[in-house]
Design a binder for these strands. Structure first.
Lengths: 214, 214
DNA sequence: GGTTGTGAATACATTCACAGCA
DNA sequence: TGCTGTGAATGTATTCACAACC
């Protein structure tokens, strides 16, 4: 072919990748409302962003819209899910079953979005007994074995700050390539491992810049 | 003056503001290790970022370093804290005392970083009795009064998704200008209100882009 | 008329590279 | 010599603006 179509090997900026799940979420809401088509303008209004940005973002992955009408929602959701890696199911483990860990385990929101928590680990295995629905709480010594047995491919870290880097190193060593870290540290991971930090303190602290007087 | 110095009215990019609390955190760690001076090079190594970026970031706020030596850590922390709004104390309330809300209330990390949770609210005020150390759990009808009485200036939202926008609107109406939102929505707030979202699902979902095969 | 998809233009963020200082 | 602070250069992201199409 002469004019090659948009293909999967083209580089997509990280910011764009991060916005796709947001689009998916809103599109799914729109589906629930019974809508079947949405324009970039309306989607933009919904998210307080420009329609141009939405069109540009989507254009990295293909042509999903129809001129004069907009995007067929169901079709677009389907495509975006595949693009962003939600075509497959992900098995997650959680390390650290303190108060936060327990809240995460019991949060019902992960599973419907494609992330099934299939095991929990804690160095102090008294912290939580089989309370949560069928998620086993195991000692750290079972980590390696369980990751393989249950095909775990992402990990959630909710251990205290001082232990976090050690735990992350261990997870990386065991082959985990995606980590969601709740510990308030700036973790180091090798290339090829993706890590995301959930850090409410940092969020608050950068907010105050805009709130302080003077 | 002819060559005006860097003054507080110059625009600082948002990304820069967001990095300042990270610097503060690392600098405080270095202090604990007993170090008194750090170069942009070493700070950069610690954070896996370029020394140039650190110097540039800091330069938005003043000249804190000494050529040939680096930055005096204690002095720099002090300055950055003031710059970012941590010179004052912040009183926070939390709305929503379900499992997540409880985990947040009991997390000991907010207070030492300048955010004191002074009240909690829930529409179902049976959810938590005075369990947590001295933080009162109140009904939503007390919100307005309590915000004034306790000089609350930031709010944490941990209610279910369906209620979140309503709660946020209410907080804004009551004069709250900074909100940390844990609900999985794209909230709308008027200009002048700063909101930050904590959204582990979105973090996971954009991670998988880099993990999926093909 | 309404809306997409996209090069071109603009705006923003990072890095370079070096003068100036301790 | 070793480091900061910063303009200039480069790299990235967003917005503009319009041809192509329903």
């Amino acid at each position: 072919m002469i004019h090659s179509n948009k293909n999967n090997s083209m580089f997509v900026p990280e910011v764009v990748v991060q916005r796709i799940p947001i689009y998916i979420r809103i599109l799914q809401e729109e589906l629930k409302y019974g809508n079947t088509v949405i324009s970039s303008k309306n989607l933009g209004k919904r998210l307080q962003m420009s329609s141009a940005q939405i069109r540009k973002d989507l254009s990295y992955f293909g042509k999903f819209g129809k001129q004069g009408q907009g995007y067929p929602i169901e079709f677009l959701v389907e495509k975006l899910k595949i693009v962003v890696g939600l075509g497959q199911k992900w098995n997650a483990c959680i390390v650290g079953t303190g108060r936060l860990g327990q809240a995460i385990i019991n949060y019902p929101g992960f599973s419907p979005e494609g992330f099934k928590i299939v095991a929990a680990f804690d160095s102090n295995n008294i912290k939580l007994d089989s309370s949560a629905d069928s998620i086993p709480i195991l000692g750290m010594e079972s980590l390696s074995k369980t990751i393989k047995q249950k095909s775990i491919n992402v990990a959630i870290v909710s251990v205290p700050a001082l232990e976090a880097q050690k735990v992350i190193d261990l997870l990386v060593f065991e082959g985990i390539k995606g980590i969601l870290n709740y510990a308030p540290i700036s973790p180091k991971v090798p290339n090829g491992v993706v890590i995301r930090n959930i850090d409410p303190i940092l969020s608050l602290q950068s907010m105050t810049y805009y709130l302080k007087e003077s």
